[in-house]
Design a protein around this nucleic acid. Structure first.
Lengths: 150, 150
DNA sequence: ATGGCTGCAAACACTTTGCATCGGC
DNA sequence: GCCGATGCAAAGTGTTTGCAGCCAT
């Protein structure tokens, strides 16, 4: 797993003519340590370390990290954005009940799609939403109990 | 391409205990004829046919169609929802410049992911965003002209 | 020291909801 | 005729932006 280190981040920022502030470093650390969070959750975590950080800074920084290609943005089956460090290609297995996210290797053959009739693919998103084994079991027992299910 | 016909839709609604109103039929037709539109664009088209339809009806109907499994919802690289009739599995090739959407068959091997360690996959979304050949050419010539590019 | 970055709050875009009326079944 | 569906407008989310002061370079 090739990840941006905290040190190499400084260079990336410099190269892009951006400043590396304490807030940005904090947010980078949070995203590093907690993949798949959304902006609100990241903001809550950030507040614990820096009680006067603003939401705007969170959004601006996440957008910046995305522009620099340091993080990837995805929806994970919801309407709003979730963030994670850019790493090897992988698919997301998202549970509709508990919201858990599992990463799995993408099917071979996906890489073959990198060049399609001259279309230049920059980012590939593969999301599988459904029910994780645990929630699936719970749903089944609920259905039995209630004798009701779609 | 197996698509819901306008006639079979009535039965689907009845079975779900929903009424088939003129508004719903209109919105279904629009989505049938114009895949990949977002709610605003659909609303604009709907207004031409029925000047007093409300946005709320559009959102409520699109949500209903999604619940009934008649349409699929995806983001197409943007932050908001786009709608299309549910059809065979396919991937979306979305251009970052012109926003065009091309559908391509999914790589074989994707179907094999349908059951993963007991995870029950309900919907699979494969999106490839990048630049279409036309926009790619334009970008290259712009870069040459301006001697500037990331 | 200077221009980018921040916090605050207001503005925005998209979507949902409350309520009175309307119309499919 | 009943109850679900509609239109309207207001409320709700998630995100962006304007501006005065601040701090990394």
């Amino acid at each position: 797993v090739k990840r941006e280190s905290r040190a190499s981040i400084r260079k990336r920022f410099q190269k892009a003519g951006k400043r590396l502030t304490a807030e940005r470093e904090l947010l980078f650390d949070i995203v590093s340590r907690h993949p798949h969070l959304d902006a609100t959750a990241i903001y809550q975590l950030a507040l614990k370390a820096d009680p006067k950080i603003g939401q705007a800074t969170v959004y601006r920084t996440l957008n910046l990290l995305a522009e620099l290609g340091i993080v990837d943005v995805s929806n994970l089956g919801e309407a709003h954005a979730h963030y994670e460090l850019r790493a090897d290609d992988h698919a997301h297995l998202v549970c509709l009940d508990c919201g858990s996210v599992r990463e799995i290797p993408p099917p071979r053959g996906l890489r073959a799609l990198d060049d399609l009739d001259g279309f230049d693919v920059r980012q590939t998103t593969l999301e599988l939403v459904g029910y994780c084994p645990k929630c699936l079991a719970k749903r089944r027992s609920d259905a039995t109990t209630q004798d009701e299910n779609a």
